[in-house]
Amino acid sequence: MHFIGKDIDQYLSQREYVDTAVVPLLELNLNPSDLKSSAGASEYLQSLTALLEKQFKGRILLFPPLSYTSGADRERVAEEISAEMKKAEFKHVFYLTTDAAWRSVEKLENVLWLPAIPTMDMDRNFKQSVMEDQLRQVLPLFLKEWS
């Protein structure tokens, strides 16, 4: 489910089934030289999480990307978001990111780091198949966590 009014109504009535939160972590880097790769990573992360939501609509609540600046203190971001997530009492919380800085942050559990693939120049069908390949890498991690 998406973090929109209509889906939240359904979430509130089906809480026992929707037990997993997915939070994309997105770095904003507006240096002229990094702007394009930052935007490409954003596109990749959002297409991937949208596909993931389509597959697991009835079990995950997909949050809008948590965006932070390139200089942000990841430790602090981690503390704040995990404290906020605790309030909603999800059984599982996944963080998806393309930002390598998260690999050294210990405070967050279940951070799935994926290298961003620049999909902007691909034609639609090719992009679709690339993204589905990417999705297939992520699905088993969810199924393993749930089992």
Partner: peptide
């Protein structure tokens, strides 16, 4: 689209029951 909460079902998604559609969510 699964009639439970809208996940995507797969044919033979569960190796133990290869002749059924399977919804991985629940």
């Amino acid at each position: 689209v699964c009639k439970h909460l809208g996940c995507t079902v797969n044919w033979a998604g569960d190796p133990e029951q290869p002749n059924r559609f399977f919804c991985p969510c629940h």
